[in-house]
Structure formats: structure tokens, C-alpha cells
Nucleic acid binder design. Sequence first.
DNA 1: TTGTACGCGTTATCAG
DNA 2: CTGATAACGCGTACAA
Lengths: 340, 340
Amino acid sequence: MVTITDIAKKAKVSISTVSYAINGTRPISEETRQRIFAVMEELGYRPNAMARGLASKKSRVIALLFPGVGMGLGMTALGFFSFTAEAALKVGYNLVLWPELMSNRSLKDHLKNGLVDGVIVMEVSIQDERVDLLRKLNFPFSMIGRTADPRELSYVDIDIRQSMYDAVNYLVELGHRHIAFINAERVPSLKGHGPTVRSQTAFAEATWQVPGVKSIIRSVPVEPNAGTEIVSALLEEDPDLTAIITHNDYAAPGITQAIIKLGYKIPEDFSIIVGPTSPHMAEIVSPPLTSLDLPIEELSRLGVRQLVHKLEGQEPELTQVLIPCHLTIRGSTGPCHIRK
Amino acid sequence: MVTITDIAKKAKVSISTVSYAINGTRPISEETRQRIFAVMEELGYRPNAMARGLASKKSRVIALLFPGVGMGLGMTALGFFSFTAEAALKVGYNLVLWPELMSNRSLKDHLKNGLVDGVIVMEVSIQDERVDLLRKLNFPFSMIGRTADPRELSYVDIDIRQSMYDAVNYLVELGHRHIAFINAERVPSLKGHGPTVRSQTAFAEATWQVPGVKSIIRSVPVEPNAGTEIVSALLEEDPDLTAIITHNDYAAPGITQAIIKLGYKIPEDFSIIVGPTSPHMAEIVSPPLTSLDLPIEELSRLGVRQLVHKLEGQEPELTQVLIPCHLTIRGSTGPCHIRK
DNA sequence: TTGTACGCGTTATCAG
DNA sequence: CTGATAACGCGTACAA
């Protein structure tokens, strides 16, 4: 292994000069700078991350905290992982993955061992233990999502309220007056999951605003088959139903199929919107579903940016960002035709 | 921050004794051991990862190397990320994500800075630059997948040959004799992608083995719509086609839909198998698709195990594991009925 | 069974 | 503009 000492010797300068040259922490004469970098290049020198971390008390590693898989995360999570890692690397940080299998105790241990400088919390719940712990420890973190009352916390999240309003409004403009919302029935560990709770509230508010709109709200498990039965049930309750918004990606194809099997045509007799979600699912279904698209890349990038700012920024700043989802019109929505 | 020195003082022993107690590297009297651990518990002490890494030259961090998103990785990648991270944590390692955005130069830098002890390579290509680099640097790594000639390399991979044989054989037993294979048309950066190349070869071999079987092989882009046109094209070429195996997850739903739209019934007139893939996609389609399921969790676990063994094991061992995919029968396959 | 002391490769302070 | 050198927190010979 080639160390900073090797560079110093070969460049005929002191260790500290090399260090300062690398970090640009203090002025170096152009001449010696050149010489130093030439030697570094020649010997293929790379500053040792551990030594740096120990001396500077900064590891330049951040962690992504997310619920274990198999609880209906789906494609969205994939995007978050990948984009967050890329965004982090671009600003000089490595991203480690911390699935929630970690007990609270284990999380605490990992937080205190100094491997990571800060964490990004994904899939934040209305009441979130992880957030409570991070605050208690005064550990740097940012959230993709937000808790119930994030007054003094920074976060980036989707503007679910605006998004739901957009979706409902779009349907209303198409003439729909009987609209159902099918939510995801979360496993216990995701109880209080922000988007799940807020999307429902937002839907309710959005429909209340419009006079003459009748709305129904239901939840079904995050499973492919979950959609099939709910449709008949909904139609029994309100035979005049003409539109469905579902926040349950996995159930969406089943819902679509169920509607078709009952003899309805999409979008002539029935309109469907899925979201917020990643477009993957929506594009695959037939017909392709109109969807509220999660701005995954942007959320990831901002989440990283916020955390890094907290780690490096001079003055702490409170940034609370809400990004609306884009409503992508596909083949599953159309003007409302009253059925006889 | 509470350091090992604090523990030593409060427990009235030397630093080294504490260190040895923690690592179990040498016998400690039960009495002092108890005392030390009590103090550690009391002060909430956690050994500093950076200091440990520097002193021991082992970071207990491993990296997962994968192609950037948006190149048709899909749900499978999500599983790999999550399961690999979990498996790593269980054996005391942190997993960092290294998307391929890293240039070869950048990868080299990251390898040499000592942050990670070893890497797991995902989505291995027949000729893989990353593998070449790792070998050249003599850097510890394991592969999920394998190169063309991995003679002296350890790996875990799916037994695609067996899997394809299973799928073809199953169709043949159902009476099918005209079978098409629709592969994924990879983006340049995934040229030579192991599973893509091997699945096709395996399909060809499997069909050649059976007398009287006519096979067609095609590739379409990894897109939802890619499936729609290929079906008519295939039927034009061979009107007696009754079965399709596709290794293109994203195209599978479209293929299914196209067949149905042409007036065929599934599985009465047509059988479809998708895979190797994660079951998610297969379950969502209507009808649910019979699929070859990737043993994602097992591959992840074994990948981690192999790497960790290489990092900690006494004698190096060459383990080459091939795991067959499970053929899950769903509603998209059935006995062949000759169409008139 | 325990203690001493050196080294790991950097950063950063204090002097020039 | 540049050099010494003391930390950083822990692992591990070497001694006792």
C-alpha cells in the first residue's frame, strides 16, 4: 500500500504539505502542487478512507434506512436505492443500506459506532420511532417523507394533497361524480405509513370540495388478487360508480381486470388512476393506467442534498420541500358516460 | 463520545484488556470480563468503526456492484439489494451500493481507498470489465452470476440450463411442439449479460434435444409495448406456434395481451412462461403467468457468504454454486390443443 | 491473567 | 508558503 508518507518522500515535501495539497485546505505553491500530484499519479496513491475518517471524524458514508422488503415496497424502492446511491457518490459519499431488520438497539449501535455521518430515512411514518431515536441522539438525518408534525425538521416529500387534488379534479372535469379510493392495507410494521395515511385524507378532502361528488374509501391488502373482489363490492354499494383511484400498486392490475371481466370497458365505462407510484406498473397494465408518478429521482437527490448540507453546511437551515406528482394521462381514463 | 479509554479507566484495567475482552482475542478472567462489559453497557460504549478499521486493516464493509437503474433491472434488483444488505448485516458487515455510473477509474479509486474489504458483483457479463479489474488488483470479490470461463473463480449463479430444460420439457409434456423464445434486447452497457446470453443458448439446446420440436428465437427491447408486435410476427412465421417462453419481464404482459387480442385464449390456445424473473410480474398479469422464479434470497445469501469466507476464511476455497429456478405453474400454461 | 507501548494513515494545530 | 508533530481510537506484539 502506498501512503501519504511515500508521496511526501518522493516529492521531497512534508506529509502535511501533501495533505493540504490534497484537501486544498491551505495555499500551496503551484510548483510543489504539480510535483505532488505527479507523484500521486505515478504511484497510484489513494488516501486511506479509514485513516481519514479517524483523523477528521468524518467517514463520508451515509446510510439509507428503509423497511425490509416484502412489505409492498415494490419498484419505487428500487429507484430510491439506486438514485440515492448515485446522488451520494456524486457528492463524494458512499451509501450503505440499513434495512429495518435492525432492532432499535442495533440501530443505535450502528449510529454510535461512527461508520456513518448521517442517515436518510425512507418510508417515514406519521409517528416514527426511527426519527424519535435520531432526534434523541441528535444524529444528523434527512427524511424522504415526513412525520405528523415535522415543524422543526427538514424533509422532502411529495405534495400528496396537491396530487390527489389534481387526480380528483381531472376526473371531475371528465364528468365523473362517483369516485372510489382504494388504499393499501399496510402490514403492522408500516402502520401509519405517511403516504398511505395522507393520500386517503387528501382524497377525502379533494372530493368534499366538489359539490355533487360521492366518494367511497376502502383498503385492500398489497397483493395482486386483492383487487378482484373489491370491485364488485364497490359497485354493489354504489352502482353509479364510474371512477377509481387506487394507491395500491399491486392491486391495480387486478382491479383493472375485475372491471373488464364484469363487462365494463375502460375507459368508456370506467376510469382508473393509480398512484402515487412509479410508472412501471402503470405502463405494464392493459390498458396502460393513468398515474400519479412519484418523482423518485428528485426526491432521492434532494434527500441527499439536504443531509449533506446538514453535514457540511455552515449554518443549519430548515428546508421543507413538497414536490407534486405528475399526472400522466394514459389509456385508463376518459369522459364519464352515464350507464343506464 | 465514549472511547475504549473511558471504559478502561472506569473498569480499572488497561486499554488492551478491554480490547481483548471485546474481541475475545485472549483469555480474560470472568470477573474482570463482567466488570468491563458492565461498564460498557453503563456508558453505552460502541467501538469506533474507523479506528478499528485503521488498526485492523479491515473495514467490515462490502460493496455491491450493479448496473445503473433504468436498464431493465426491475424488481429482481430490488430483492438483491435488500436481501444482500440483510445477509451482510447478519454477519457483521455493512453493504454499500456502487452503481455502475462509476467509471473504471473511479471504481479503481474506490477499491484502493480501503473503505471496503470486498465486493459482490451483480449482473455479470460474459466478458466483464469489472471482474477483470478485480482480478488484476487481486481484490476480494464474489459474483452473483459468472463470466464465460470462470474456471478458477468462485460464483453463485442460477442453473439456467437446467431451468430452461425444465420449462421446455414441461411444455413438451403438455404437447407443445412449436415453441418460441423471446429474449431481452439489452442496452449496450449490458451487452453480454450472462443470463440473457445463456438463457437463449439453453433454450436452443433444450429444444434441439427433443425431436419434432420447432423453435424460434427473437429479441425485443425491455419495454412494456415491445411484446405487442412480436406476437403477430411470430405467428406469421409459424402459424402453428402454441407456446412462448420469454426472458423479458417487461414485455411479458404485452405479449400476453397481444395474444388475447388476436382472439386466442390462454392457456387453451396458447401457453406462456416467463423467466427467470421474480414472481411479482408473473402474479400481476392476467392470467397469472407460469414462471421460472429466481432464487433471489438464496443467491444473495450465498454471494455474501462466499465473499465473507474469502475475507475471513483460513484457506481459500473454490465454490461454484448453480441453483435451479423453481418452475411455478400458474394459469398461463396448459395442454396443447391443435388449432385448425 | 494483565499491562505497556507502538503503529495504523490522516488531519490539523502550532511554529517557522 | 512549508515543516514538525500531536492527536484520532483501537489492535496487537512484547513483557511481566
